[in-house]
Design a protein around this nucleic acid. Structure first.
Length: 594
DNA sequence: TCAAATGGCGCC
DNA sequence: AAAGGGCGCCATTTGA
């Protein structure tokens, strides 16, 4: 038997392990066991969320597997922090319902972005009680649902305002709150199938995110060390700059005839101004056009500095252990539904560093990338027949170019990105007219979204994730600019924030819907990969998945990425004649994937 | 003196 | 007329 903990009670093998749920009981609600007891308190629920059996303490992964084998879907307050110890003990569930993840989506739809979203919060709101903050403390004992139930005296809501100090030592209060939160959410989800799909996919994504952080992305430290040494010189002493950067700093000083700190934009800009270049910023894109001896060493310094500070030896020591880069992933961490990363810059691994991302012996990477996802998504959500036709093509931008840009692919791409991001100046602005003529429905879709934003409204992704509304400050500035006595500066400011907001909502409908699709793709692939021994889902970045898998399974895994993409297309964009192709590539080194 | 803001840049 | 989306992370700068 595999113990979940090494606490004193973990050796007990004959404890009250739960009976596996019977047919018809498909939800297993899980909270940490109360007090110091190891393990978890689990209760079987019926489909509608009503308890179907007494809660039992579960201590071993074998027992959890039995529940899972009988068809249970796990219900818990939040995948983080419940799942990591389960995973460490070797248990990987097929699916779950993550109340907190779900609640954030539901609250957003109800115009209540940012309110506490834990099961305890849902429970408290349901009973008109004070709502606990999401993160009360980091200890398991202060787990939000447990905290709320203990604080308010559940399971008996009639006792809610008494006995607070006494708390809940049975742990059943937390289960009670969790189950009620689930019932509450079921009612609010109703029969909204796209929304249910989104919630199921997001819960599965939460599982995948914990697994990815746990597995880690294979990365050979000695290979990265070699790259660093080659480019920067040997690893410097703590607090010192690498030799190559010191050299370049010397060249910069010589070129300016003064001591200049290239890490300081203020200093650097002043130096360039002294030699006659009236630059507004010290971005590389600005400096590269300056005809001055300092230009080359400054650009070189910036590049090395970035490598050294973002992915240098300190980064290696902090994030890479035993040949794997372990980052923290936050599904739904971005308002659009994209993932965010916590620590290590996991979603911005530079191309150079990818040279150190090398498959282990006997394994390869299957890198699957959803090509040109966002314009295809736009075609789907807008229902634009002409753009849908273009989206069926292998290279969308080439097709676009042939369909109105005189075969100029670069222009076609620039125009399309501009349409989705809200750029209208310069080149992209001029090209927009062509898009509007050729794809009026798609352009109307993003322009309607922009108009909503400019007016302070919200927009929604295809499956129903809503954009956050503007804050009070936005409304204040907006109103100040529209009053008769507004100063020109206030009017300008109001116009500017309206435009900013419009660009945000314009992009949200596309980026958010792409994230919807990607989440469904990921969760489907995660499920399918469970049938491939040795296959590890090790990386996910917006529209790209990396699977580390035994060499002999590579072709099969590639096929699964394609099939999951097709399945996601059918689920997310039913009846829409668009394609969302992925092209899997089998490589030993991640850098070779592009 | 320390926390928050800014500038810059990597990824999508 | 003008209008470049989302993030995380680092070093520097600013400001309370």
């Amino acid at each position: 038997m595999t113990d979940l903990t090494d606490g004193p009670a973990a050796g007990m093998t004959d404890g009250p392990v739960g009976p596996a749920p019977q047919n018809g009981a498909v939800i297993a609600a899980v909270v940490p066991a109360p007090g110091d007891e190891p393990g978890w308190l689990v209760q079987t629920l019926s489909d509608d969320g009503t308890p179907a059996a007494e809660p039992v303490i579960v201590r071993a992964v074998e027992d959890l597997r039995r529940w899972e084998a009988s068809g249970a879907r796990w219900l818990w307050d939040a995948t983080e922090p419940i799942y990591p110890p389960l995973l460490t003990a070797g248990f990987s569930p097929l699916r779950c319902h993550d109340v907190t993840m779900t609640e954030r989506i539901l609250l957003g739809r109800e115009g209540r972005h940012g309110e506490p979203a834990s099961a305890g919060a849902v429970w408290a709101r349901r009973h008109g009680l004070p709502v606990p903050a999401d993160r009360v403390a980091e200890t398991p004992d202060a787990h939000p649902a447990l905290f709320a139930a203990a604080l308010f005296g559940a399971p008996d809501p009639e006792r809610a305002d008494g006995d607070r100090a006494e708390g809940d030592h049975s742990g059943t209060g937390a289960l009670f709150a969790l189950c009620e939160a689930y019932v509450d959410q079921l009612a609010r989800m109703g029969q909204n199938n796209p929304l249910k799909l989104l919630i199921a996919a997001e819960s599965a994504a939460a599982l995948a995110a914990v697994e990815m952080g746990h597995l880690g992305l294979p990365l050979r430290a000695e290979v990265l060390d070699g790259i660093l040494t080659e480019m920067l010189g040997p690893r410097p002493a703590v607090g010192a700059r690498p030799a190559r950067m010191v050299e370049l700093a010397g060249e910069i000083d010589a070129a300016f005839g003064a001591s200049v700190n290239p890490d300081s934009p203020v200093d650097l800009r002043a130096a360039f101004r002294r030699v006659g270049f009236d630059i507004e910023s010290t971005r590389s894109s600005v400096i590269k056009d300056l005809d001055h001896p300092a230009t080359a060493p400054v650009l070189a310094y910036k590049e090395l500095s970035r490598l050294f500070t973002a992915n240098g030896w300190n980064w290696l020591a902090e994030w890479v252990r035993d040949g794997r880069f372990h980052a923290g992933y936050v599904p739904g961490g971005v308002v659009s539904g994209r993932w965010a990363a916590r620590g290590g810059g996991a979603l911005q691994i530079p191309k150079l560093v990818r040279r150190a991302v090398i498959a282990e012996p006997g394994y390869v990477f299957v890198v699957a990338d959803a090509a040109q996802l966002e314009p295809r998504v736009l075609a789907a959500i807008a229902g634009d027949p002409a753009l849908q036709a273009v989206s069926q093509q292998n290279d969308l931008y080439t097709a676009l170019a042939d369909d109105g840009f005189g075969g100029d692919r670069a222009h076609a791409k620039l125009a399309m990105l501009g349409a989705m991001y809200g750029a209208t100046s310069g080149e992209a602005g001029r090209l927009l007219a062509t898009l509007r003529r050729r794809y009026p429905v798609a352009m109307a879709c993003v322009e309607d979204a922009a108009r909503q934003g400019e007016l302070g409204g919200v927009v929604s992704s295809v499956l129903g994730r809503t954009s956050p509304p503007p804050g009070q400050n936005w409304w204040d500035l907006s109103q100040a600019g529209s009053l008769p006595e507004a100063t020109p500066a206030q009017e300008r400011r109001a116009r500017q924030i309206a435009r900013d907001r419009g660009r945000f909502t314009r992009n949200f409908v596309v980026q958010g819907s792409a994230a919807d699709w990607a989440g469904v793709w990921l969760s489907g692939l995660r499920r399918d990969l469970r049938g491939v021994p040795g296959a590890e889902l090790v990386f996910f970045q917006h529209d790209e998945i990396v699977v580390h898998t035994p060499t002999e399974t590579a072709a099969m895994v590639g096929d699964l990425t394609v099939a999951a993409a097709e399945s996601a297309r059918a689920l997310v964009f039913p009846g829409r004649p668009v394609a969302t192709p992925v092209r899997p590539v089998v490589v030993d080194c991640y850098a070779d994937a592009k």
